[in-house]
Computed example of a mutant assay.
Amino acid sequence: MRPDVRRWLRRRTFSAATWGAAELAEARRAQGATVSVVLPALDEEPTVGAIVTAVREELVRRVALVDEVVVVDSGSADRTAAVAAAAGARVVDTTTVLAAHGRVPGKGEALWKGLAATSGDLVVFVDADLVGFDPQFVVGLLGPLLTDPGIGYVKALYDRPLSTTEGIVPSGGGRVTELVARPLLNAFWPELAGFVQPLSGEYAGRRELLEQVPFVSGYGVEFGLLVDLAALAGVDALAQVDLGTRRHGHQSDAALGRMAGQILQTALSRRPHAGAPAADLLQFLRTADGVEAVSWNVGVTERPPMSAVRAETGGSRP
C-alpha cells in the first residue's frame, strides 16, 4: 500500500458512532452553519417516506441539526412526490429547477438541481431507496465537517448485503464498485485508493466546494465528484465515515452494465495523460475492528507478437 494512502486511511476514516446528533447540533449553532439534506428520487414510493420521516423527526424536530429536507423528483411515475410531501419534505421537480438549462436524464441531474434548490452551507445527499434507514447516517456524514474545518467532503463506507436466490450475502453488493470503479481509481488516481465505497450514494460536503465542480448527469456523478473534489481541494480535504450496513434494492446485470458504461465515460474524460497506470489494487475486507485494506499487484506483462520474437532471434518453428 502506498504510504500516503496508509496515512490518509488512518487520519481520514471515521465511525458514525463517534458523534451524537445533539453534540453536532450544538457545533452547528456555534458555527452559524445551516444544513440541507437532499434525496434524489425516481419511483421510490416504497422507501422515500420513511427516510424523510426519520430525518424530520430525529434531526429537525427532536434535535435541530438539519434545516431543510428536499426531495428532487426526476419524473417519477408512481407516488414518490406525494409520499415525500406527506412525510414533510419540500419536493421539487427536475423540470422546474433551473428550467432555462432544460432537463437531462440521470441521477447526477437530480443532485445538481438539488444543490441549486437548497441553501444549506453543508449539503448531505442520501439515496431515496434505502431500506431500514438510520438517521445516524446523516449524523455520521456531518461529523467530520462540523468538527474539522480542514475537511470539505465526506463519503460513506458500509457493508452492502446482496439478496440472492439462496438468501442474503452479507457483503456481496457493490459489484460495479469492485469490477469497474475501484480498478479505475487504483490505476489512474492511486491517491484515492483508500475510499472503501467510492460510488456510495451517501455523502456530504461544503457548498463552497460543491458549487465549484461539475456534476455528471448519470451514474458517473459520484466518481466524477470524488476525482474533481480531490483535484480542487486535495485528498486530505476528503474523508470517509463507516455507517455500518446499508440496504437497498439491487439492479439487473444489464442495468449495472449501463451504470458501468457511464462511470467509464466519466473516468476516461478525466484520465491523466502522463505515465503508465499504477499496478497495485487496494481492496477491503470487513473485520471485527472495522475494515482491513489488502493490496494486490495486478500489473500485467505484455509479450510481443511471436513473429517479432522469431525475427529477432532468427528462430524457426519447432
Rank of each mutant, 00 (worst) to 15 (best):
A64D: 07
E23M: 08
R270G: 04
F223N: 02
A254C: 04
G102L: 10
V138T: 02
S316V: 15
D127N: 05
S15E: 05
L256K: 15
V63Q: 03
E302Q: 15
L145E: 08
R182T: 14
A276M: 08
E222L: 00
A86S: 10
S74H: 10
G257S: 14
H248F: 13
A308M: 10
T34R: 08
P214V: 03
A239R: 02
G75E: 07
R258A: 09
V291L: 01
R29I: 06
E208W: 03
P214L: 03
R160C: 08
W19K: 01
E57M: 01
R258H: 12
L268W: 14
P190W: 02
L226M: 06
H273M: 13
L225H: 11
A22K: 11
F215P: 06
T147C: 11
G167E: 03
A278M: 05
P272A: 12
V97L: 09
G150V: 01
A308C: 02
E166F: 06
G234Q: 05
R28I: 00
G314E: 14
R303D: 07
V169I: 03
E202V: 01
E45V: 07
A100N: 04
P161I: 06
T177N: 10
V38A: 02
K113M: 13
P149A: 09
A64G: 15
V63S: 00
P198M: 00
V92H: 06
P135Y: 03
M259S: 04
V92T: 12
H248S: 13
W19A: 01
R207A: 02
D289K: 09
L226V: 01
L226A: 06
A27I: 06
G114F: 00
A110E: 04
Y203L: 09
S269N: 07
P105R: 14
G173P: 11
S316E: 14
T94Y: 03
A84C: 13
E208D: 13
T164H: 08
S307A: 15
V71F: 13
A27M: 08
L130R: 13
L229S: 05
D4V: 13
H250E: 14
N186H: 10
A100F: 01
S307R: 15
V235F: 13
V309C: 14
D253Y: 07
P3L: 09
W189N: 09
E208G: 04
G172K: 02
G314C: 11
W8D: 05
Y219F: 07
E166V: 02
A274S: 14
T96S: 13
A311M: 07
R270E: 11
